[in-house]
Design a protein around this nucleic acid. Structure first.
Lengths: 110, 110
DNA sequence: GGGTTTGTTCGAGATTCATCGAACATCTAA
DNA sequence: TTAGATGTTCGATGAATCTCGAACAAACCC
């Protein structure tokens, strides 16, 4: 089985995180994740191949931004929100503040 | 003389800014600028060629991060701090909060 | 004017990156 | 066991990026 590896956020550098966030697809993935709480790779509303989606998730994972766990044939992803807030204060808010695509979302208070 | 062009921050997207911040050299440049207030290209304490420094400044400029003005044969650069704080709240603090590390500096004694 | 300083621009080389289809692996359902 | 669903990995390809030296341009100083 595939044991996903996640870095300690203390070992993640700022350039690595910024690089991970420099792609519009990955920013959109992060927003979807924050919006839904947890999503499988296939649930990402993007018109790119699943190979590319897998690649983007790997980048996000290695940058310490998301946490992936296997469940059946699917992999469920979440944003490492609390840890990130400690390591890079304000980063998540920055990502979410850009282009608020969905307004009046149903109380998913975080 | 060369008329430097600077984008409106409203037109700058998050991926573009993140891309600009994904290079350790450019992060170091920003830190030096914030520390000194205003610096010429040649005053950047990095061991890279002036052609490369010029390139990095162009990237930072086009990402809306720094403002460049000519003065004699030199070009003085400042961080667009106030504007950035409005457009991308917390971004500058994020860059400064990262522990300063050695970027392309001389190696320590062996 | 001639020379110096400062920075830009122009190739060019090397590396990295995003993207895809195809093949593969793993788990679930029938 | 077989078939389907879900992701990963493997090449490959085209684009972007980082870096440099060399040539160039503009402003200063003598």
């Amino acid at each position: 089985m595939k044991p996903y590896t996640h870095p300690e956020l203390a070992d993640v550098t700022l350039p690595v995180v910024m690089q991970a966030l420099s792609d519009p697809c990955r920013i959109e993935i992060l927003r979807s994740l924050m919006d839904a709480g947890e999503l499988a790779c296939g649930d990402i509303p993007l018109t790119i191949s699943k190979a590319t989606v897998s690649h983007h998730f790997a980048v996000l994972r290695e940058a310490g931004l998301v946490l992936t766990r296997s469940e059946g044939t699917r992999c469920l992803n979440t944003v490492r929100e609390n840890e990130l807030e400690k390591r890079f204060p304000g980063l998540i808010a920055l990502v979410l503040s850009e282009k608020p695509k969905k307004v009046a979302k149903k109380a998913v208070s975080a």
